[in-house]
Design a protein around this nucleic acid. Structure first.
Lengths: 239, 239
DNA sequence: CGCTCGCTTGATCTCCTTCAAGGACAGTGG
DNA sequence: CCACTGTCCTTGAAGGAGATCAAGCGAGCG
């Protein structure tokens, strides 16, 4: 039986060296599991979170609602990822965290994590680094949505989520789950659903990638990475 | 005589409670000062930084170079701000840090900061939080560049930099220095210089704001914040 | 004085949006 | 088993925000 803490430890080990003792301490963290139904939020803008979230299954997303109800998505989260580590040291949420599809999440109380941070410098370093990698991801999303034309943007997006899925051990048969609607992708890339659809059609026709029925299949990684001008460096992954 | 560490401490105090003792320890940090000429970089993508940077005078910017040489700016930094705290726990830079105009910077060796982090939990918390506020700023830039039309985007941009200048104590007579060219702004907002120019013209005509000769003057804050759909919450400032 | 750099403005083009409608598929209830 | 309904995907046609190309202007400076 895997604990929530173990999954967190595993996730941290993707971006740095985690001593066995620290890993054991993380694995022993108290946690609560909870179901989160499709389109429900677990954290809302303005709240003061008290727990760290770990995705156990499903797919989460983080977003803000702009003026006129326009929704901008900041990031998506595969199972094993920890979406809101920054809540540890930010007083209140300036964005919301919800479920794209029915999901299961683990919740670790902040106090328990604070204790680890105080006592285990190596674990602290990786937790901190993880929040910094998040920041690097936001920067990449900024670059993508500001600079790249739609087809490159979409290709780049696929590259990132595929790479993160691989790091999480979720890639099977050259593909991974990506249970989004085209509208979600549009809200992430700052495009309209219609244009995402047309752009996707073009990408499919190149033969580099397919994405349908919630599953992403990469057929030609080199070509896809090239189209999306993707360099995984910003993810700071070891594996 | 103000030390580099004192400026850093002052900056951290903007986002949280900093005990006197921690402040004194930060103030006593060893530091080196250095001039950075216009358009020179102090950190380049790919490097492994060894120092924390504090802006003493001038104006810095952080950017990446995309394919075909397109430059995307991720953020600008007023004097007193600390652009690259994340270098403490990120192995290598995935972006560059340079000077918009002739500037002066302070450099604090990482080891000295690590010691503070290990021994002073309150200072550590604020250093960490500062890196998280940076991430929140990146998210806001993502929202701005993805969703907002040019005039709102520019207004929002002015709002952020004005608010940060105020927090840094740099606002005088309803204005602050903003020594950028229109091309820099274009690279920040993901627009062309030509379009920034036209958009600026429109904003000036509203009477809410002016920006020329490197100086930003806010004449009607409410109107400007409204046009830019600006809410300072994401900056997590206390003052 | 002439040169460069940055600001300004005009004309045209294009990528993406907007508006609109049809089609595929799954779930539900008769 | 099949109509009914809703959700998501797909495609077409027209419109617009911003890009691109091009040229003139003004101020600082060697």
């Amino acid at each position: 039986m895997t604990t929530v803490g173990e999954i967190l430890a595993q996730h941290l080990a993707c971006i740095g060296e985690l001593p066995d003792e620290d890993r054991a301490i993380l694995a022993a963290l108290p946690a609560e599991e909870r179901d989160l139904r499709r389109l429900r939020d677990t954290l809302k803008a303005g709240e003061r979170p008290t727990h760290v979230v770990v995705v156990l299954s499903g797919f989460l997303y983080r977003y803000t609602i702009g003026p006129e109800g326009a929704r901008q998505i900041h990031s998506f989260y595969h199972p094993t990822e920890a979406p809101c580590l920054e809540t540890l040291y930010i007083d209140y949420m300036d964005n919301s965290l919800g479920a794209v599809v029915d999901s299961r999440i683990g919740l670790i109380p902040h106090e328990a994590v604070y204790r680890v941070i105080d006592e285990r410098p190596e674990a602290r370093k990786l937790l901190w680094r993880q929040t910094l990698v998040q920041a690097a991801i936001f920067r990449q999303w900024l670059v993508r949505n500001s600079n790249l034309p739609a087809h490159a943007s979409l290709a780049n997006f696929f590259c990132e989520l595929f790479t993160r899925a691989r790091a999480a051990g979720l890639v099977k048969d050259g593909g991974c789950d990506l249970p989004l609607t085209q509208e979600f992708v549009a809200e992430a890339l700052g495009l309209t659903p219609v244009h995402v659809n047309r752009t996707l059609k073009v990408l499919r026709e190149t033969g580099a990638v397919d994405w349908r029925s919630g599953r992403l299949t990469v057929k030609d990684w080199t070509m896809l990475a090239d189209m999306g001008d993707f360099d995984a460096g910003y993810l700071h992954l070891r594996c």
